[in-house]
Design a protein around this nucleic acid. Structure first.
Lengths: 167, 167
DNA sequence: TCTATCTAGTTCAACTTTCAAGAAAAGGTC
DNA sequence: GACCTTTTCTTGAAAGTTGAACTAGATAGA
């Protein structure tokens, strides 16, 4: 008999534990670092900044809410609150979707774009300093492959998976 | 003249952009994944679970608040709230530090240890499924090195750095 | 000693995120 | 069309986090 719930747990090896710990430390510190950098220089957390970046790269600087949530890997609820806040700042506005009356488009305003242009150089520099300047080309390549693998693992093709933007 | 604020920004290359995006996607999905797994199976977010793990591995199952914050890479404020919540659950209790009257020890209770033993197998399994089962040995090794490098970069030896637990 | 400064930890208010519930439109089936 | 289900997005309350202010005790220098 070997069901998941009763079989002996496959504990992590010493190396795996060290890697897992290092992963948690690094990601926690990096998130804290960029949140602070952007709160200071752009007046918003990193997640919100990422939303503006997405919008700035979308055709006509606008995107359907669910699509934006999918790109950002967050729930629609979280996105609703975030967009409400960014709207209050004047960096985004909402717009009814012409083809689907349930739908909303989030639109990056001129002010939003300006804010983005102002803060982008500083943020890119911070990303460089904290990440790319510290890794060899080979490590960057490897990190990309690893992260793509892990992300794909959590959002498989077919998908009955519990994805944030479908919740 | 080449000051940080006026020189042309060193934008990310296409590959760097892809790696950065993949990093954000993977870490966001992983955090969401483990937070949900632990909220479901242990009734607490991943950060809180990590605190119990730390305490369980500390001598006499206790640790000074600031020390715990340093290990978890979080602020003392955040830790105060977290411990208050865990105390309400009966999994941790506070204890005055004998040698420093300002100090507090967070102590893992028997109930806390029991809860940890109950939920550890499921969590380890989740970590395996989402991370280690998907990577080659070489990738695991590489990930460890990369994450150690990035973490060290944000908390250098000497240190005038803006570290969460010193704020 | 007296005083200034620093460290440990907590607290409050503001902000962000989650979770569950709900309104409104779309899509499918008979 | 009438009915049921699904999709889209929002809301409100509870939980978690942040940043600044604060208390109390430790530390160091005159």
């Amino acid at each position: 008999m070997t069901t998941a719930s009763t079989s002996a747990p496959r504990w992590l090896t010493d190396e795996e534990q060290r890697v897992w710990r290092a992963y948690l430390h690094a990601t926690t510190l990096l998130e804290d670092h960029f949140d602070r950098q952007l709160q200071r220089d752009a007046g918003m957390p990193h997640t919100y900044y990422g939303l503006l970046v997405q919008l700035s790269q979308a055709p006509r600087r606008r995107m359907r809410m669910t699509e934006l949530a999918r790109n950002a890997k967050i729930t629609r609820s979280r996105l609703s609150h975030a967009i409400a806040r960014l709207e209050k700042n004047g960096w985004v506005r909402r717009e009814d979707c012409p083809s689907d009356k349930r739908g909303q488009n989030a639109v990056l305003t001129d002010d939003g774009l300006a804010m983005l242009r102002r803060s982008a150089p500083g943020h890119v520099e911070a990303v460089r300093q904290a990440m790319f300047d510290r890794l060899t080309d080979e490590q960057v390549r490897s990190l990309g492959e690893i992260m793509r693998t892990l992300a794909t693992g959590l959002e498989p093709e077919g998908t009955d998976a519990d994805l944030p933007w479908l919740r």
